[in-house]
Design a protein around this nucleic acid. Structure first.
Length: 187
DNA sequence: CACACGATGCGCT
DNA sequence: GCGCATCGTGTGG
């Protein structure tokens, strides 16, 4: 059984955590069935200064409050009236930050944040769960394989801070929602 | 209380 | 590439 990612690991700067999550495995138990997928695409969302973030203006609201809390907790929100997006809270307590899980491969394959939640049966019920201590929801340590390259690119589906290169993905994984040929050409 | 708007995905052109 | 479903959230009146 691989080790679980620790509070200290989640508590590092958001961009570092985002990159670190690639190759790690997200586990979720529903009933007596374990669902799991290898994380292959992520996006970082910061606090003040990142206008695309739910914590952009530095103000806590009922929805985004968990982004300001201690690292290692799940931040799940409902989007477009039909999809869920699953994030992991980062940074030290009081500092907002989260990493959006956008794609999985391996046992459960999913390209895109909404499909990722569908594949692992993640929903608003999971909002606020502690990935460090929860027996049914956690992340196993992992790394990209030796031959795999990591691409850093701009984020998907946002209207603000569009040029910030806060998306990371594993080149050639089927779980990547959208490739960025320009970023790939820089490798 | 009203309303504008998504950190999306899918089907059609 | 484009339109659209569908509804919680945040903001402003």
């Amino acid at each position: 059984m691989p080790a679980r990612l620790s509070r200290a690991t989640f508590g590092r700067p958001t961009l570092a955590v985002a990159r670190r999550l690639l190759g790690c495995v997200l586990w979720h138990r529903t009933g007596d069935v374990w669902l799991r997928g290898r994380i292959v695409e992520v996006e970082a969302y910061l606090g003040n200064g990142d206008l695309a973030s739910h914590a952009a203006n530095g103000k806590r609201t009922p929805r985004n409050g968990i982004m300001f809390g201690p690292a290692g907790f799940a931040y799940v929100y409902f989007s477009y009236g039909m999809h869920h997006c699953f994030n992991v809270v980062t940074e030290s307590d009081g500092q907002a930050g989260a990493v959006l899980i956008r794609g999985l491969d391996g046992i459960e394959r999913a390209a895109g944040p909404g499909l990722t939640c569908r594949a692992l049966n993640l929903s608003l019920r999971d909002n606020g769960r502690d990935l460090v201590t929860d027996s049914d929801l956690w992340i196993a340590t992992g790394r990209p394989r030796r031959h795999e390259r990591v691409v850093q690119a701009t984020r998907i589906g946002i209207r603000k801070s569009v040029d910030l290169p806060y998306r990371f993905y594993i080149l050639d994984s089927p779980g990547v929602s959208r490739r960025d040929r320009t970023a790939e050409s820089r490798l």
